[in-house]
Each structure stands twice: as structure tokens, then as C-alpha cells.
Amino acid sequence: MTAPHDAAVREIAPDVLAAFESAKGFMPVDEGLALHAAAVRAAGLGLPLVEVGTYCGRSTILLAEVARAAGVLAVTVDHHRGSEEQQPGWEYHDPELVDPVVGRMDTLPTFRRTLHAAGLEEHVLALVGRSPQAAAAWGRPVGLVFVDGGHTDEHAGGDYEGWAPHLAEGGLLVVHDVFPDPADGGQAPYRVYRRALDSGAFAEEEAAGCRSLRVLRRTGPGL
């Protein structure tokens, strides 16, 4: 899948794009630009843009830049203790992110430095805690939900179940790390993507996706 990334590049200030590229994280530039382009469209609803799975704020920069330009709020949700694959002994573990006092992962300080360096702190509401709890306490429609948190069925499914019902009609559900072939990656985000389509409440915007990033528009009830 491809998207009109050149247009997205023109909309991102060079310093913001540089901040994205230099931030800790795993999202490649092309998928980041597809996320940014989706956020630009979703921001037209005048509603908050929600990200589930902050990590160190790499993709948050893109949503915050859109929020600043559109006059909406970017909301990012994470417990900041790292997902399963980021724990000691796993593939994506970064020992620099371990709190030496408590001996556990803590990405919150790095996230705050990331937003500060990008000059975007005032455009982001950071919710520190578990995604289902945050979703249960949330009380208004949103224009975008970006699912990029834990990659187990429990966590990815919980993110979808908690936040997708808050999406306004016409809002966008963006799911990262969607791999139809199990040889390419874990299947939980793919199952969330399929679940959304099978619900009848979403239609895929195929031209808006990029590789493992899928973009779906909420077209009606059914969740």
C-alpha cells in the first residue's frame, strides 16, 4: 500500500520531521508520514486525536504537529512500563530506559524530553495508565484512534474495544504493525484490523495505508 507522502512532507515543518526522525522509536518514516496524513484528514472533524502506545513519543510528535495546526488536542495513552517485547531479555529492550531506582522500564522521562525538544508539549495531553481504564473514563467523541500499544491479543484487543466506540462517524481508526503473514510479525494487530472490518462499522481507506499501517474510516454504528 502506498499513500501521497510527498503532500504529507510539505505539511510537516522541517524541524518537526527532524525531531521525529531523531526520537527513540520503531516507526519508519514512510509509515509515519502516512499516519501524519491520516491525522490531517481526521483533524478536520475538530475532535481530539488519540494515540494508544506512546513509548518515547516518536509518533506523538506527528499527531501533536497536526493538533497544533488544527487547533485540536493530541491525546496519548501509555503506562510507560514498556510492552512485552521491550522487557529485559527481549528483542526490543533498551537498557537506557530502565529506571535505576525501581529497576523497571520507564519511558515517561524520555517521552517528555522528546516533546520538549520538538516544542510541542502544550498540544499534548499525556494519560499515564492502562489504556482500558483511560478509555472507560473518557467521555467525548474523538476524530482519530491510533492503535500501537501492546501486541498481544489481550492488549491490542483491549485498546480497540476501549477506544473504537469513542470514534465519531467519519473518524479514522489507524492500526500499526498489521501483518497478514505470520512470518512477518505478530498477529494481534492484524486480528484487530480484521475485527474492525468484520464489524461493519468501518471501511478501509486502502490508498491511505502504508506497509504495516492500515487506515479505516468509521462509517456507521455496529461496535
Rank of each mutant, 00 (worst) to 15 (best):
G53T: 06
A19V: 02
A203L: 13
V147D: 00
E161Y: 00
L47C: 07
H176P: 01
A8E: 06
S131E: 10
L125R: 13
D177R: 03
L125H: 06
G46W: 01
L167H: 02
H123N: 07
D153C: 02
P141T: 04
Q87I: 08
V174H: 07
A168C: 06
L97I: 07
A38F: 08
A43R: 07
H123L: 01
A8T: 02
E91V: 12
V142Y: 01
F146M: 04
L115P: 11
V52Q: 05
F26H: 06
F20N: 02
G44K: 08
A196D: 09
C210W: 13
G103D: 03
A117D: 14
A136Q: 15
V98F: 05
R218C: 01
G185N: 10
A208W: 12
A23Q: 07
A117G: 15
V147N: 03
A136M: 12
H123K: 05
C210D: 02
M1A: 14
H151L: 00
S83W: 00
V29I: 14
L108C: 02
A64D: 06
A19R: 08
P4E: 11
V215I: 06
H36F: 15
L213F: 05
M105I: 15
L173C: 08
V16L: 09
R218V: 05
A3Q: 09
E154Y: 01
W90M: 15
P180N: 13
P109M: 11
A164Q: 12
L73K: 14
G57N: 09
D106Q: 03
E169A: 00
Y55F: 15
A137E: 14
I61Q: 04
S199P: 04
E31D: 07
S131G: 05
A19Q: 02
F26M: 13
A118W: 11
H151Q: 03
S212D: 12
D94A: 12
F179R: 11
W90R: 15
D153M: 04
G209S: 05
A117K: 14
A135T: 04
H80E: 08
G32T: 10
R195T: 15
G44A: 09
A207Q: 06
H93S: 05
F146L: 09
P95R: 14
H79A: 06
R195W: 08
T114Y: 08
R130L: 10
T2N: 10
D184K: 01
A183P: 00
A137M: 11
P88L: 14
G119P: 07
S212M: 02
H79S: 06
A70P: 03
S83I: 08
V192I: 09
P182Y: 15
R41G: 04
W138K: 05
R58H: 12
R68D: 02
V145P: 00
L33S: 10
A18S: 13
A7C: 01
L17E: 12
V66C: 01
L197A: 11
A201L: 03
A64S: 14
D198L: 12
M105C: 13
A37Q: 13
A117W: 08
T110D: 10
A3P: 02
G220Y: 11
V178W: 00
V192F: 00
D177W: 04
E161S: 04
L45K: 07
H176R: 11
D78C: 04
T107Q: 09
